[in-house]
């Protein structure tokens, strides 16, 4: 049973955490793709930017949260979402819109977004330095240990405060997005434009508005994902490096242009990562006595070492491109 608890802590909880973060990031990527038809490489750095804004605000007013009883970083999140959304819209106006107006190929937009990536990285590092910093400036990170009411189980299930916030906020964000896309006039217009941009224009939908709304949503979601990740671990200026490949893999696994697919893809990639680095020997330990003696299990039965974690999203990406390039949920645009 202790082994099972270990499994829950290291796979179920850890996988849900990374899965949620990848899912929120992948939604942004997939929305941008479905409206503007290009892979937005700067997305992971927009996530980092959002987290950095929270860090700046939290460092500036470290004591705000204590009065209400939540981490200050969480109170600063809505403000950071606004700032990040504004940045995303601004980047579009300054860099992507002129390229779109020239009618360039989507791949040129991709290169443009790489340029934006570098600029954001340069800016963030210029101001933050290169080291890691905790978003818990003045607050304390609560850790909950839930002891299980079974006999012989000593290890508790461990979950931290930011992880609980992460699950709640992810759920709220997904439900809000669902309602927006299916109930609101603007959300339906967004889906319409992703379906058929010319017809959307012919119906009187202002495509510039939809583009701006897409950036606002993608930027705000990116700020959420970046902040929650930084809360869970620490803020690092090279966060994007660990995020870019997984969120693209998630978006493609789910079917590009498919927001719900992106959510599923995020969890697929997140769990695949945690399962791949999990040492399966732990689960086999209880059966050690019943195994034949000639079978000597090595102490490390993980598929890949943590240092090769990046192989996992790549492997998933290649596998899906080979067997089902439209993704699990039949993406629209290939």
């Amino acid at each position: 049973m202790n082994e099972l608890v270990f499994f829950i802590n290291n796979v179920v909880i850890a996988g849900s955490v990374t899965g949620s973060i990848y899912a929120i990031g992948a939604i942004g990527v997939t929305l941008i793709f479905s409206i503007m038809r290009f892979a937005h490489f700067a997305h992971a750095d927009i996530m980092t930017f959002g987290a950095f804004m929270v860090l700046l605000l939290t460092t500036a007013f470290p004591a705000v949260g204590a009065s209400i009883g939540v981490p200050t970083a969480l109170i600063m999140l809505p403000l950071a979402m606004l700032l990040t959304a504004a940045l995303a819209v601004g980047i579009d106006k300054a860099f992507y819109k002129p390229l779109r107006a020239h009618g360039v190929k989507p791949i040129v937009m991709v290169i443009g977004s790489l340029g934006v990536t570098l600029m954001l990285q340069g800016l963030i590092r210029l101001f933050s330095g290169t080291g890691g910093q905790s978003l818990y400036v003045d607050d304390r990170k609560e850790i909950f240990r839930l002891a299980l009411p079974f006999e012989g189980v000593r290890a508790p299930i461990v979950i931290t405060e930011p992880q609980i916030y992460l699950f709640v906020i992810t759920l709220v964000a997904v439900v809000a997005l669902h309602l927006f896309l299916n109930r609101s006039r603007l959300g339906k217009a967004m889906r319409a434009m992703s379906d058929n941009p010319e017809l959307a224009q012919a119906s009187g939908i202002n495509t510039n508005t939809i583009v701006a709304v897409t950036w606002v949503i993608a930027g705000a979601l990116a700020a959420i994902a970046g902040t929650l990740l930084s809360l869970d671990v620490t803020f690092k200026p090279d966060l994007s490096f660990f995020l870019l490949l997984p969120i693209f893999a998630a978006a493609i696994v789910g079917g590009v242009g498919h927001p719900y697919g992106a959510i599923a893809g995020g969890f697929v990639v997140g769990f695949a990562e945690t399962l791949a680095v999990f040492n399966w020997n732990v689960l086999l330990r209880p059966f050690r006595d019943s195994l034949p003696t000639w079978l000597e299990l090595p102490s490390n039965l993980a598929f890949v070492g943590t240092e090769y974690k990046i192989v996992v999203p790549f492997f998933i990406l290649v596998a899906i491109l080979v067997w089902r390039p439209t993704g699990l949920f039949k993406g629209k645009v290939i």
Binding site: A189, R191, D195, N196, L199, A200, A202, G204
Partner: peptide, 21 residues
């Protein structure tokens, strides 16, 4: 238009609503 004249993933009702956007 002659071709691509509906939004395929939107429901019929949503298609019509888009017309009155």
């Amino acid at each position: 238009p002659q071709e691509k004249n509906v939004f395929p993933s939107l429901t019929v009702k949503e298609n019509l609503e888009m017309g009155a956007y």
